[in-house]
Simulated scan of single mutants.
Amino acid sequence: MKLNSTVLLTLILLVLMLGAGSVSAFWGFTLGSAALKGVTAPDARPTSKYTSAKSAKEQHAGVAFLKEDQILKIVKSRIEGKTKAAKSRKKDDDDEQVNTSKAKKEEKSTPAAEQEKPQEGFPINAQSEGVSLSVQSARFSGGALLLKVQMQNKGKDSVRFLYSFLDVSDDKGRTLSASTEGLPSELPVNGSPVSGTVSIPTPLLDNVKRISLALTDYPAQRLRLEVPNIPVER
């Protein structure tokens, strides 16, 4: 009985030892597999080494160094190209500036030439005591008749004018209202010619073909400037 108990205990211990060893082995295998997961062995194939060596050789062979004379030629051609481009741009700028200057001169000279061209039947002059009054032109513009007038004093004394005394009449003897612009209140002796404008509203000139101007000095009224028969053309 005692022997059977000993044998049974021995078998139980043996089974427990085998079970513990199996569990330990399985647990060790599981931990080792998890630790080596994602780790691959190096590629020791000879074809791969040959391909890597060939690629490196090709990359090394692709780098080409230029000779000194070739570098100098390239630099020289680039410098010459930039110089020619700069000269070409400068020439274009100069040509554009010259053309602009010519255009401006033509724009300035054209109106002056038109103004200097005398209107047919003008100027009409009047003179008294060395003082002259000249009507240079008569043109309609902006709802009024504009008379371009020029005055000069070559007499002995300076002369003063009050243009409210300017008398404007038509060919039927009717008095017309007028306004002046640019005419001086006083003309000095031997002064330069002075220009101005006499403006007459267009509605006052219906069926009018000619008008007349008359002006006297103020306050002495020693002279009288009369410009008759100024043609009015529409």
Rank of each mutant, 00 (worst) to 15 (best):
G62F: 05
D94E: 10
S101M: 14
S88N: 09
A64Q: 14
E80F: 07
G62C: 05
S101P: 01
S55C: 05
K90V: 04
Q59S: 09
K82Q: 12
A86F: 08
E96G: 07
I79K: 11
R78N: 08
I71T: 04
T83M: 07
Q59T: 10
K57A: 14
A56H: 09
T83S: 12
R89V: 06
I71D: 02
K87G: 03
D92K: 13
K84M: 13
T83H: 06
E58M: 12
K73L: 07
L66E: 00
A86I: 05
T100V: 13
G62T: 13
N99Y: 10
K87N: 12
K76W: 02
G81T: 05
T83E: 09
T100A: 14
G62R: 11
Q97N: 10
D95N: 15
K87E: 15
H60E: 15
K76Y: 03
K90F: 04
Q97V: 10
I74L: 08
G62Q: 08
T83F: 03
T83W: 02
K76V: 03
K57Y: 11
K87Y: 07
K57I: 05
E68W: 02
A64I: 08
Q70N: 05
A64P: 00
S77R: 08
V75W: 03
L72E: 13
Q97K: 13
F65A: 00
E58H: 13
H60S: 15
A85E: 11
S101V: 11
D94V: 06
K73Y: 04
E96D: 14
S101K: 12
K82F: 06
D95M: 15
A64G: 04
K57W: 12
V75Q: 10
T83V: 11
Q97D: 10
D69S: 04
V63F: 04
I74R: 03
I71W: 00
Q59Y: 12
E80S: 15
S77G: 03
D93Y: 09
K67F: 00
K84Y: 06
K90P: 01
F65Q: 02
E96H: 08
D95Q: 14
A85R: 10
L72C: 05
V75G: 02
K82T: 05
T100D: 13
D69I: 00
E96W: 07
R78T: 04
R78P: 00
K90Y: 07
A56P: 01
K82P: 00
E80M: 13
D94G: 02
A64Y: 02
L66P: 00
D69T: 01
E58P: 01
G81Q: 06
Q59E: 11
G62W: 03
Q70L: 01
T100K: 12
D69R: 00
R78E: 08
A64T: 13
Q97R: 15
A61H: 05
S101D: 14
R78G: 02
S77F: 03
K90E: 10
L66Q: 00
K84R: 14
K84G: 03
R89D: 10
S101H: 07
G62S: 15
K73D: 13
Q59M: 11
N99H: 12
K67C: 02
A86Q: 11
R78H: 08
K76G: 06
S55D: 12
Q70R: 02
